[in-house]
């Protein structure tokens, strides 16, 4: 295939990798899992920076955060005993959504969130869990709310100036009830019609608050603020799940601005949210 690659670099440290990124700017292509980028090299790229040797494969927790390294593969997340215990196992379960064994084994958490395609499974998960992304420009750490990463400016910064090093999930979410759902043609199909992740902070059968993130049916994963507001202070029942699901559909309709496209998927997003909320209420 035609390309203008002149060199391959294999940095052994984060600072070396960031140095290459900052020096070469758009001439550098960062690859890790390499599942897609190797097939789409921009003509400006003359250096491939393979960061797969960097020490960013950790999954660990401290008092404040659950920390997931950018180079953890989807497979490692899915099989992590720590993630299986966190928020009803929603991280481990959602990580394995919509991919085959190769995507799970080669694809990295960092690639999944930095190249945040609407079908990717991790952005709605981290949005719902109030996660933050952490990057470095070689001199200082940059911490950004996950929602900011998904904006164009966030994507530009983390694709060029900052190297994503980890995602942090607040420790308070560990005991929260959570569930995720997706609708796709097949289990291993990457492209889904709709997907959602819900997280519920519940005490004595009453929701103290909750998060609902939807993706695939909209261009980028988003929280459904009005539906979330309906949950606060309400009993964790199917009736409130139905109300919240209806609010999600209404919010998606507004985002679609009357377009008939994906009307079916928006309806299904509501169904998925209702199912996920009911599952979380029972967890």
């Amino acid at each position: 295939m035609k390309n203008n690659i002149r060199q391959f670099c294999f940095p052994a440290s984060v600072s070396e990798a960031v140095g290459l990124m900052n020096r070469l700017k758009s001439k550098a292509l960062i690859v890790a899992g390499g599942t897609r980028l190797a097939r789409a090299i921009p003509p400006a790229v003359d250096t491939v920076v393979d960061i797969s040797d960097l020490p960013l494969k950790h999954i660990k927790a401290d008092k404040a955060w659950l920390r997931i390294g950018a180079l953890c593969t989807i497979d490692e997340m899915e099989k992590s005993p720590l993630l299986a215990r966190w928020a009803c196992g929603v991280i481990a379960k959602t990580a394995g959504f919509g991919s085959n064994s190769f995507s799970r084994g080669m694809g990295t958490m960092g690639g999944n969130v930095v190249r945040a395609h609407p079908y990717n499974n991790l952005p709605p998960l981290f949005l719902a869990l109030d996660a933050v992304v952490v990057g470095t420009d070689g001199r200082r750490e940059k911490v950004l709310p996950f929602a900011e990463l998904l904006k164009p400016e966030g994507m530009r910064e983390f694709g060029s100036r900052y190297l994503l090093t980890e995602v942090r999930v607040p420790a308070r979410t560990k005991k929260w009830a959570a569930a995720s759902e997706r609708l796709a043609l097949t289990k291993s199909d990457w492209e889904s019609y709709a997907s959602c992740v819900v997280v519920v902070d519940r005490k004595g059968g009453v929701c103290r608050g909750g998060a609902i993130a939807v993706s695939a049916v909209i261009p980028r994963a988003a929280r459904m603020a009005r539906a979330e507001a309906l949950l606060a202070g309400q009993p964790a029942t199917e009736a409130i799940a139905r109300k919240a699901a209806a609010a999600v559909v209404a919010e998606l309709e507004e985002l679609a601005a009357g377009s008939a496209a994906k009307a079916y998927a928006r309806e299904m997003a509501g169904v998925l949210v209702r199912r996920a909320l009911c599952e979380a209420f029972q967890a």
Binding site: F8, V31, G34, T35, A38, R39, V48, D50, F102, M106
Partner: peptide, 11 residues
């Protein structure tokens, strides 16, 4: 397991 069609030989 890895897909050899999805990675550069140099990798």
């Amino acid at each position: 397991p890895a897909l050899s069609c999805m990675m550069f030989a140099a990798q």
